[in-house]
Amino acid sequence: MARAVTPRRKALNTVVAWVIGLIIFFPIMWIFILSFKTEGSAILPPLDVLRSSWTFENYGVVQDRSDYFKYFGNSVVLAFGSTLLGLIIAVPAAWAMAFVPSRRTKDILMWMLSTKMLPAVGVLYPIYLLFIKLGILDSRIGLTIVLMLINLPIIIWMLYTYFREIPGEILEAARMDGANLREEVLYVLTPMAIPGIASTVLLNVILAWNEAFWTLNLTAANAAPLTAFIASYSSPEGLFYAKLSAASVMAIAPILIMGWFSQKQLVRGLTFGAVK
């Protein structure tokens, strides 16, 4: 900004923004607090909750009772697996569209986007049926493929926008300098594209990690990731706030941290470049 703001104005901005920020963040902070309380004290009025003693036992209980790490493992495999698989298919496609554009490139990109807008519920039964016929219902491989396919348009789109920012003249310079296609990709393109690829991976891991339509409908015991694990708490018995909180914290913590690093990419990835 071109002009300095008065200290009073700045202080006011700060107070208002922090209050709103903390209110929005409060639910997450609250389950974080509850996860370190006993079940008995987790249901007390808020002030009593804060005064009650702290404990780490919920995290152990969640693991013992419901095998948290199995679900966590599934989430990791699905999120990273689908993203990496998507990258393998998307990198060449995005590279080609960005550096060798043809008249149809734009149409292809738009068409790819349109597949992302297909409502999942509209094709639920066919996918369900195909999964049964292929014997991949409740399997990690089946779900990995579905998650890869639903995020493929976003991966291609993001990579395309990043690649397009790499000036074509640089690749031509490499070609003039005697680099063959392999060397061009290895020494020039890849180092320049790595930040973009990393952002793409980050955002798509987050999206796949939190995906909760296909993961709930196509898994049971074997391939269920954390989304399904948490959903099993929707009709529990007895007191469960502290355990649910601990389980939730474990389910969202890794992705929350990744998410904080990917704010910028979020805008680019989810608006398909429509907002700059």
Partner: peptide, 26 residues
């Protein structure tokens, strides 16, 4: 302009990264 703008931003965007089942249950 404010102090701690980056942190406020982080607080505000956090809910987006909470998986739907967790946010619904909490």
């Amino acid at each position: 302009e404010m102090w701690g703008q980056g942190i406020v931003r982080i607080l505000v965007i956090a809910p987006f990264f909470v998986m739907p089942t967790v946010s619904a249950l909490l």
